[in-house]
Every structure is written in C-alpha cells, then in structure tokens.
C-alpha cells in the first residue's frame, strides 16, 4: 500500500506540480479526516474507499454533487470540486489497497445474512461481496454500520438513492433487522 501511495505522490510531484490545478493527492488527503488515511476508513459508519473502482467513486460523488443522491454531508462537500477533480480523487482512491473492516459481529446475524445474500444478492455481489468492478462496489469487508445505514436508506422513500432496479426490488421486502443481518454478513467477508 505504502508503495502505491508514495508512487502516486511522487508521480504528482514530478508531473503536474507546476500546474495551478489541485493535484489528486492534495485533494484526496483532505478526505482522510473522515475516510481514513488513503481511504482506509476505521470508523464503522464511514465507508472504506480504498481500492473501490474509479467509476463507482466518480459516479457516486457526482450524484452527491448534483443532488441526485441523498447525503447528510457528502453532497455539501462534493459541490466544492469540479467533475475533473472528483475523477482525479476517484483514480487516487482506486489505486489504494483495500483494508477490510474489523468489527464485532454476531454469528447469528452473519448466518441470517448469508441466507439473505444467497437468496437476494448473490447474483450481483459475487465473491461474497468482495468482487468489485466499474459501478459495482466491494461490500465484503466493508463496515457493517455503514452498510446498514446505506441499505436502510435505499428502502426509505425520503432519500434519493439511485440503485439498480434489481437491488431495489431485492431489498424492498426486507426488514431493518434483515438489512442489518446482511450488513453483518458482508462485514464478515474479510
């Protein structure tokens, strides 16, 4: 990880330092106060960004910025950046290595979550949620509290949460308890 991190830094210093643009690393450092150094969040309700696909990060941030996706705070911050800057940060975080969350989980919830995963989610969230590509985020090893909040918001009509149709359908009949079980299952996929 450190190597990647420093590679990026060196590349930026060597390359674009003379431009008046704000570099990807300079922009991304400022995110770490909430999302952890290099996007390796240690806080259970804030998502790990490291290693997530550029397209996912860029897309979701643009949605926050444009008000197409509800957030408490992310949209207010996203509006401070150009689309190109958002993409630069997405590239920065994609290059960082994913570091799985380690949290206290309930084996019963994990087992229930596994059942639900296999019934509802397995078609898309391959590799027990660890697979990530393009607009599909890695959720295996993500923080359970973050996932719980996210899933609950998908099911709450007051929040705009653009989702694949299939995801909305799969989640619509689940209770808060079941959503939490799913979140715990994915959190356990280290």
């Amino acid at each position: 990880m450190m190597r990647t991190f420093m590679f990026v830094v060196v590349a930026i210093l060597a390359g674009a330092a003379s431009a008046a643009e704000r570099s990807a690393s300079m922009l991304s450092y400022a995110c770490a106060g909430c999302h952890g150094t290099a996007g390796a969040s240690a806080g259970d309700s804030l998502p790990i960004l490291a290693g997530l696909p550029r397209e996912y990060l860029s897309n979701i941030m643009l949605q926050y910025k444009n008000g197409e996706r509800y957030s408490t705070i992310m949209g207010r911050i996203a509006r401070g950046y150009s689309d190109a800057e958002i993409d630069a940060m997405a590239i920065f975080f994609e290059k960082q290595k994913w570091v799985s969350a380690v949290s206290q989980l309930d084996p019963k919830m994990i087992a229930r979550g596994k059942e639900l995963h296999e019934q509802k989610c397995v078609r898309c969230h391959l590799g027990n949620g660890q697979y990530t590509e393009y607009l599909l985020p890695r959720i295996g090893g993500q923080w359970s509290d973050y996932l719980t909040i996210y899933l609950k918001n998908v099911n709450t009509s007051e929040f705009k949460q653009p989702q694949p149709q299939l995801m909305k359908e799969s989640l619509s009949l689940l209770t808060d308890e079941e959503l939490a079980a799913l979140a715990q299952f994915y959190a356990a996929q280290q």
């Binding site: 990880m1 952890g36 969040s41 259970d44 960082q96 570091v99 799985s100 391959l126 280290q190």
Partner: peptide, 22 residues
C-alpha cells in the same frame, strides 16, 4: 474502535485478489 483506528490504517490487513483485481 479506537484500536481499530490505530491498528488498521493505512497499511493492508488482508486484501484479497477478488476485491482488488479489476
């Protein structure tokens, strides 16, 4: 969680190929 904070970031714990190869 504080332990988690100080223990985990930023170096890698156990990242798997499946989550990192694109």
């Amino acid at each position: 969680f504080i332990f988690a904070a100080l223990g985990l970031a930023p170096a890698g714990l156990r990242a798997e190929n499946v989550g990192n190869i694109k």
